[in-house]
Nucleic acid binder design. Structure first.
Lengths: 114, 114
DNA sequence: CCTTCGCATCGATGGCCGTCGATGCAACCT
DNA sequence: AGGTTGCATCGACGGCCATCGATGCGAAGG
């Protein structure tokens, strides 16, 4: 009745398109680094809403160059905004991404409606 | 009155702990690959709820060894379960992770309550 | 038992990326 | 102007990982 032995279902083609998968993976790649996550957490946890880069070097236990690199990555991904104010660079979580970042750092990176 | 010039806020220490960041990053690292995302999508999109590994090689355009490797990664991360049935290996999204996976693949990997 | 088939595992390889010292550069200070 | 300080950028290095051919191994089938 069926040529298939019990295997080989056609696989519905409603899967993620290749470009969509690429984009999604890109966002996850940004989040897939513990230093960047703690960086995000530090920026998000400060009551003033913004942090100077000079305050981020020490708690992360990484060189200034490395922290700066990670900050660039976060800014580039649109998760964080940077504002040069005088000699210092101030970072804050991107307003439109605030709740996204919050849920990501919440432990359960998705559907954390509880 | 203040030795600080306008910078150097103490940084509230309510940030992500290092181990927590490591764990979170680990989960994101699993999701940070387009092939794995499409793999997840394929498994999640099949109406029967489970797929035989033999059906996953072709649509992903990767060698059988590579697909098997990615499947192991997903199983290891607890996102997918494997059941050996006769000669074939059947995979399904882990029941307790179903809504997580769904929201991840939904485009907005978090707080997609709409 | 021998062959075939499905799939995991191994070993090797190439590329990406986290890391850091060094350098550059702009803003402030004196 | 010269010095200092904050931060981005550069170049290099090392490690992790996606990928694949080859191999191993168990399950069917003859």
């Amino acid at each position: 009745m069926d040529a298939n032995i019990g295997c080989c279902v056609p696989v519905t083609d409603e899967a993620l398109s290749r470009p969509a998968a690429q984009d999604l993976a890109g966002m996850f790649k940004v989040l897939a680094d513990p230093v960047r996550l703690r960086l995000l957490s530090l920026i998000a946890s400060v009551p003033e809403g913004e942090v100077c880069a000079c305050d981020l070097n020490e708690p992360l236990d990484r060189s200034q160059a490395t922290v700066s690199h990670h900050l660039s990555t976060l800014v580039n991904a649109g998760l964080v905004t940077r504002e040069q104010r005088g000699k210092w660079a101030w970072f804050r979580v991107a307003p439109d991404r605030a709740d996204f970042v919050k849920s990501v750092l919440g432990g359960q990176p998705a559907v954390s409606i509880r």
